[in-house]
Nucleic acid binder design. Structure first.
Lengths: 142, 142
DNA sequence: TTAATTGCAAACATTTTGCAGGTTC
DNA sequence: GAACCTGCAAAATGTTTGCAATTAA
């Protein structure tokens, strides 16, 4: 049974280590954002992250949440997903993988990279190199 | 040689037919948006479409462009792409296909469906059915 | 102590909406 | 003439930014 209002959090020590490994100064707020974000495989919006950080009793501003997520994204600590035009989602799973997206409920579900075979990839346009492949399988409740 | 400021447009008659086939009343403004959008395979933002409709000497408001694109999208006349959080792109190619996205230039390039083999698709989550698959291959200028 | 980080509020860009007036069939 | 469509301006959203105050090393 879980305590109401108390979500699972990643341990501070693990978050600090993750940040330092990527050369990110482990400030109070960044660690708190990380505790929420790295708690488990999930897909959260900036607003949901802000809510949860505040819910754990910490003090952060919306601007810092955005700054932090952008920094995490640049440093490869999080993957930013643009599924629709509404808002972005932040995915703590940075290893290659893909997603189901339920257009009715908005739910996002991870698909492990090896659950989907991408054969005969076309060559990238001249003068460009592959960076990342995103597969989004849109589904609807039936 | 092309006339400056005069982009290629889809013929009115073809646009009217496309709209009517999907049960969309072919009003003045919708046809003009269609003439721009269905001119060729491309990826335009709402703002670019507005600019081009105005450039062809027609009179449309931004609100109508958005209303029209949303209607076209609902009726399957256009496909809406969310590549990053900035803005949406409208793709007149509605048949299955995929995209290269150059993260440096913002350029989008179509990949024909048969140029990319998606093998061993995972089953959709219980209670859901496949609707559409989007593959975005992010590349960067090298 | 010096640079980096934070919070606030204002700024921004894109998209949506309410409603009066105009258009379509 | 009834329903639908358009334009305008305002509103709503999500995100970024400038700057003074605070914190980190």
């Amino acid at each position: 049974m879980s305590t109401p209002g108390t979500a699972q959090l990643a341990p501070r020590a693990r978050v600090v280590e993750l940040l330092e490994r990527r050369g990110v100064t482990a400030t109070q707020q960044r660690v708190e954002v990380g505790q929420v974000l790295f708690a488990c495989p999930q897909h959260l919006s900036a607003d949901q992250i802000l809510e949860r950080v505040l819910a754990m009793g910490a003090r952060v501003s919306k601007a810092t949440v955005y700054n932090t997520l952008n920094l995490f994204s640049e440093r490869g600590l999080v993957r930013t997903l643009s599924i629709d035009g509404d808002r972005q989602f932040y995915d703590p799973t940075t290893a290659p993988h893909h997603h189901f997206y339920n257009v009715d409920t908005g739910e996002l579900i991870d698909i492990p990279a090896d659950a989907l075979a991408l054969a005969s990839l076309p060559a990238p346009p001249a003068g460009t190199a592959h960076e990342r492949i995103d597969v989004i399988i849109r589904v609807r409740s039936s």
